[in-house]
């Protein structure tokens, strides 16, 4: 008994020795490696600051910020698709801030009222297992995916939980609204995609895993991640840009409204979106900068050699209807495409 008590008390004691540095709390989906790198770099410049990052999916980050609205715990929200930021802006979760480079970004990649700014461009691609398929054999455009020969060979992230898939699906419906004046054609298309889809995975790891382990041959995902997995982890992944044009998603950054260290957050904001940082992120962490003033020769070849056509997309229409569309997909289409 006494032994246990001693251990217990010593643990309590250990937990009390907190430092007197100012904490800066960052919610981010960018991953441990990249977050650690920028924590170290920022703390070198600001030795009195303790950067505390919480690595979590963008949806989880959004969830937490919403639940903590009355008593915000985070200072920064670094990383989420622009549509999520548009929603967060409407729900008054963000604080406005104009970065020094505000003029060097396309207007559709930032908030009109400075609540968030784009950091990275992430074009979506049709990815495939290169051990099983060549680029020629793999689907080359959106409609190729509906070919019955891919039945049971497509694996997708569960779209409700994935910002990437939400955007792809919503873009397809938005296209249908734009071209036909109704969302019906878009849902019809998604129904046929569902018929070919083998499974929806709950997290990206499952998707990579099942694609790499040949449970499926094709998926839809963002290009930088696919390149990263292929080049760094040597997984057998290849990709095709859809010929008719792809969805290019903007990943952003924002300060949390009512946060405890707003000044510090602004400094961190500028620090991780500086030219040097953007170049480092491109080279080491496979991110495509959204700023249009980064010298092209300082970027890696996989970015500069990339050419794709963008699908023109009404982001506000998507931000407005995304939840409703996804709910409809979830209750009326998921798993029912082959019926």
């Amino acid at each position: 008994m006494k032994f246990t008590l001693c251990i217990f008390l010593s643990f309590i004691f250990l937990s009390c020795n907190s430092s007197n540095k100012t904490p800066l709390v960052v919610y981010s989906p960018h991953g441990k490696d990249m977050l650690e790198e920028f924590e170290k770099r920022f703390e070198k410049v600001h030795p009195d600051v303790d950067v505390q990052w919480l690595d979590m999916g963008s949806q989880d980050a959004y969830d937490r910020i919403r639940t903590e609205k009355e008593n915000p715990q985070a200072d920064m929200w670094w990383g989420a698709p622009s549509t999520m930021f548009i929603r967060a802006e409407k729900e008054s979760l963000l604080a406005a801030y104009t970065p020094a480079w505000a003029d060097h970004i396309a207007p559709e990649n930032r908030s009109a009222h400075n609540f968030w700014y784009g950091t990275f461009a992430t074009p979506e691609v049709i990815a495939f297992n290169s051990h099983l398929l060549t680029s020629e054999e793999a689907p080359k455009d959106w409609n190729d995916l509906l070919d019955p020969k891919w039945k049971g060979k497509i694996i997708l992230r569960y779209p409700l939980a994935s910002g990437t898939l939400r955007i792809i699906f919503s873009s397809i419906i938005a296209q249908s609204v734009k071209n036909y004046g109704t969302d019906e054609n878009g849902f019809q298309w998604l129904r046929r995609l569902d018929a070919n889809t083998k499974a929806y995975t709950p997290d990206p790891t499952q998707m990579y895993l099942r694609l790499a382990r040949e449970e499926a041959e094709v998926t839809l995902w963002d290009m930088p991640d696919i390149v990263f997995q292929a080049e760094v982890n040597h997984y057998p992944f290849g990709y095709n840009f859809p010929k008719s044009g792809t969805v290019s998603l903007t990943d952003g950054i924002a300060i949390v409204r009512g946060c405890k260290h707003e000044k510090l957050a602004e400094e961190f904001y500028e620090f991780v979106t500086s030219k040097e940082s953007m170049i480092l992120q491109a080279r080491k962490f496979y991110r495509i900068p959204a700023r249009n003033d980064i010298p092209r020769d300082s970027l890696p070849k996989w970015i500069t050699s990339t050419h794709f056509t963008s699908m023109p997309i009404d982001w506000n229409l998507i931000a407005q209807h995304e939840s409703e569309w996804m709910e409809k997909w979830d209750s009326e289409i998921k798993g029912k495409g082959s019926q």
Binding site: P29, G31, K32, G57, D203, T205, Y208, L209, Q229
Partner: peptide, 13 residues
Amino acid sequence: SIEILSQLRLYNV
């Protein structure tokens, strides 16, 4: 557990 999830998110199985 969060550390494990973090690793998984980066596909560090």
